[in-house]
Simulated scan of single mutants.
Amino acid sequence: MSMRSALLVVPFLAGAVCALAAGSVEGRVLPFRQVEVSAPVSSRIAELKVKEGDLVKEGQPLALLYGKLEELEMQRAKALLERREFEAKSAKRLYDNKIIPEAKAMETRIDLDLAKLQYESAAEQVRLRTVLAPLDGVVVTTARETGETVSAGQPLFRILDLSKVVVQLTVDADALGTLAPGRHVRVNLRKAAEPLEGRVTLVDPCADAEGRVRVRVVVENTDRKIRSGIRARVDWSDAQ
Results as ranks from 00 to 15, higher is better:
71 E>R: 06
188 N>C: 14
89 K>A: 11
76 R>V: 14
32 F>A: 11
103 A>Q: 01
127 R>I: 02
98 K>V: 14
144 R>M: 05
174 D>A: 14
208 D>C: 01
209 A>T: 13
141 T>E: 06
3 M>H: 15
58 E>V: 11
129 R>Q: 10
139 V>W: 07
232 A>C: 04
175 A>K: 01
11 P>Q: 04
54 D>T: 02
133 A>M: 08
192 A>P: 10
96 D>M: 10
214 R>Q: 15
60 Q>L: 06
229 G>S: 11
74 M>W: 12
135 L>T: 00
191 K>F: 15
115 A>H: 09
40 P>K: 13
173 A>R: 12
91 A>F: 11
224 R>C: 02
155 P>Y: 02
18 C>I: 15
16 A>P: 06
5 S>K: 12
96 D>P: 10
41 V>G: 09
225 K>S: 12
13 L>A: 12
20 L>H: 00
14 A>R: 10
91 A>S: 13
211 G>R: 09
26 E>F: 11
68 K>L: 13
117 L>S: 09
88 A>E: 06
175 A>D: 01
75 Q>K: 15
154 Q>P: 00
229 G>Y: 09
220 E>H: 13
203 V>S: 05
143 A>R: 10
99 I>K: 00
101 P>K: 00
36 E>D: 11
84 R>Q: 11
31 P>H: 08
41 V>D: 01
235 D>S: 05
83 R>K: 15
31 P>D: 05
163 S>H: 02
66 Y>I: 15
206 C>L: 11
148 E>S: 08
135 L>E: 03
160 L>N: 04
148 E>H: 08
26 E>N: 05
97 N>G: 02
238 D>V: 13
50 V>Q: 05
20 L>W: 01
92 K>D: 13
48 L>G: 02
203 V>W: 03
225 K>V: 14
228 S>V: 12
63 A>T: 12
25 V>A: 09
122 A>L: 07
66 Y>D: 14
38 S>N: 06
136 D>C: 07
86 F>A: 15
180 A>D: 02
9 V>S: 14
117 L>K: 13
74 M>G: 02
165 V>E: 00
175 A>H: 00
27 G>R: 06
133 A>R: 10
168 Q>T: 09
215 V>E: 03
159 I>V: 03
127 R>Y: 02
182 G>V: 07
156 L>C: 01
4 R>K: 14
125 Q>N: 15
190 R>H: 13
29 V>I: 11
236 W>R: 11
141 T>W: 02
143 A>T: 00
218 V>L: 06
218 V>G: 03
201 T>K: 12
164 K>M: 04
222 T>G: 12
216 R>S: 04
10 V>E: 14
205 P>N: 04
63 A>P: 10
217 V>Q: 03
151 S>W: 03
138 V>S: 05
226 I>T: 07
81 L>K: 07
206 C>W: 10
208 D>R: 04
176 L>R: 08
188 N>T: 15
192 A>I: 14
207 A>D: 00
80 L>W: 05
235 D>F: 09
79 A>T: 08
158 R>W: 06
87 E>M: 15
198 G>D: 10
69 L>S: 06
211 G>T: 08
